[in-house]
Nucleic acid binder design. Structure first.
Lengths: 348, 348
DNA sequence: CTCTACATAGAAAGCGCTTGCTGTCACGCT
DNA sequence: AGCGTGACAGCAAGCGCTTTCTATGTAGAG
């Protein structure tokens, strides 16, 4: 049968209480006793029963990380950074924590369900990554859930997601709007006047913010936007490919294409090439995020670098209470424009 | 305070046992009673206490997924597929399970520690992805651990990892050797006779298998390998870049470079370009895995496609007991050679 | 040499849930 | 009418651990 605390206690000739104290190390235990206990633990190959201690202590060492798509490096990088700070094994933090990465697939229901599951596990903290969904009822439900989690003592941190007022959640928000503006301004500065924009899914805050930044830039430079210049799609390569063809169909005179993110931009590049257009000679292309592969595109992608790993690490530390939350519980994280080969002045 | 089962029972005017049974749904409960209970649950906003039920039922709904690097799409894709099958929220499987993605960072200790943590949580299943580490003591420790997990009722599945004999683990192994052989044979078929090989870290089984396949192919065609043609590095772009420069330094007459995986291949491409060499005109390049971005390289990468998502899904189903394990507990998953623009006949 | 104080160790009461076993009805059969 | 039989519902005993409170032994203080 499975070895229990009591077995260890018996073997070490001490009470279960003592064994527990040795294992948790927060109560004075004489060195000799401790040693005896440790020896028994080792000999019996004892492994603590997680659920039992969680129940008794009313705390758990699980930390939830919600991501839209773990197969996407955008989330993978953040998750990795968060997890490193959570201090799974190897982390410097004392107690070993288990990071639970939950893949919502961008679905509102799953987002909520995962939160419930985490609440059920009495998670020590929860980090939500990536943009939120802009649906009033869903947002209300999420906020209520977050509030409840926070009330139950779970630390809630938003990483790359807009603040959720009144929920007690700490927010590290990406300045998508600023990045979008800067990127488009760069293109305008190069002389572009007819810019296509491949946006992400309509209902995501990230999509809206980046698009707003783009439009802000256009407006600031007196460029009137043509409704045909914006196409919505998903945040993936395929979508970028198709959207670009659509854009080209609508207005073949576009001299630049701004994509919702790097994957979309790569798809755009492929579509342009397949259409016989050269980058950046005929059409400039810009992405967003600066994922690792973006520099390997040919030509290398001009994009806005988001400090994914840094933000994730910070979110992780805050979740662990190892770093103070930003003032007001909200911090904006800026992106950095990376100008590379995929953008240049228009031909005409 | 927090709402407990008893509170719900009181409100619904039934015993705690009945509430539990309604919630777990595996015991006959009259429809009217069930309704009353559900109503109370809803009204009180009750959330089951995970640790408590895990303790009482001696089972948990946690499933561990061990990956080397969650930021790497190779693992991200598998993790995503596994998770989808595990049936987190939205999964068709009945009980909702929480996937715990553990990032080992390729470290043996962390691998082991995570396994202990999972054992502590009494995980329902554990899926280990990617190659194993070839260190006898570590392998022994891992096997012992896996054996223990299996004995405790945790289903253990290896996905893309060599079988671990006598541990009771089901293995879905990638045929890295076969893929490596096929890839190099393709190059040889094109006429290449001087092939550089950028291998991964020495201590990984994946590295060895792919390299062995490469050498098998060389041997089969009577090509004597020059020791200078193999360089070891990490499985990342950077490493590929540096290794390629090293390879070029050692033997500038190489006409092809075979990389340990696609990221490395991308780095190799960059290094070649930076060295003024054209791909594939001057040097052919081949990768491995066929990650999504590989097709976007210019020229598109010739590589061996590994059915990551399919294998992950299968592993997930097996872990959930939703699919029968392969005969003998071991199945080999083949890769498929994808010939694209980055390889062509040598110039001379 | 007695008394107080401190450092440890143990006893025992739960933590919130599951489940085997024991009722209790209401039927329908003989 | 009597009773076997299901279909439900409840009782109560834990699951394995943490932690408060209490007991004990020893050392320094008076």
């Amino acid at each position: 049968m499975t070895v229990t605390l009591a077995d260890v206690a018996a073997r070490a000739q001490v009470s279960p209480a003592t064994v527990s104290r040795v294992l948790n190390g927060n109560y004075p235990v004489a060195a000799s006793t401790r040693e005896r206990v440790l020896k028994a633990v080792d000999e019996l190959d004892y492994v603590l029963n997680g659920p039992a201690s969680a129940l008794a202590a009313a705390t758990s060492d699980l930390v939830g990380i919600l991501v839209n798509d773990i197969a996407d490096p955008f989330f993978g990088i953040m998750a990795s950074a968060i997890q490193a700070e959570i201090g799974g094994p190897g982390g410097r933090a004392g107690g070993e924590r288990l990071a639970v990465v939950c893949n919502t697939g961008g679905s509102p229901e799953r987002e909520l369900t995962y939160l419930t599951l985490l609440q059920r596990q009495r998670a020590a903290a929860v980090v939500l990554t990536g943009g939120a969904i802009e649906d009033a009822p869903h947002k209300a439900a999420m906020d209520a859930k977050l509030r409840k989690l926070a009330d139950a003592g779970t630390r809630v941190v938003l990483c790359g997601r807009p603040p959720a007022a009144e929920t007690g959640a700490i927010a590290l928000t990406f300045d998508n709007r600023g990045g979008g503006r800067e990127l488009t301004e760069h293109l305008i500065g190069l002389g572009h006047r007819r810019l296509g924009y491949i946006a992400g899914p309509l209902e995501r805050t990230t999509t809206r913010h980046r698009l707003e930044g783009h439009r802000d830039a256009l407006a600031a430079h007196g460029i009137e936007e043509d409704a045909r210049w914006t196409v919505h799609g998903r945040y993936d390569r395929r979508s970028g490919y198709e959207a670009t063809l659509e854009l080209l169909r609508r207005d073949p005179s576009l001299t630049a294409v701004v994509a919702a993110n790097d994957s979309v931009a790569l798809g755009a590049c492929a579509a342009l090439r397949d259409s016989g257009l050269r980058i950046p000679d005929d059409v400039s292309v810009a992405g967003f995020d600066d994922l690792p592969f973006s520099i390997d595109a040919v030509p290398a992608l001009t994009t806005v670098r988001l400090p994914l790993a840094e933000a994730g690490a910070r979110a992780g530390r805050i979740a662990m209470g190892r770093e103070e939350a930003p003032h007001g519980g909200i911090a904006s994280v800026r992106g950095e424009l990376m100008v590379r080969g995929s953008t240049a002045g228009p031909r005409d």
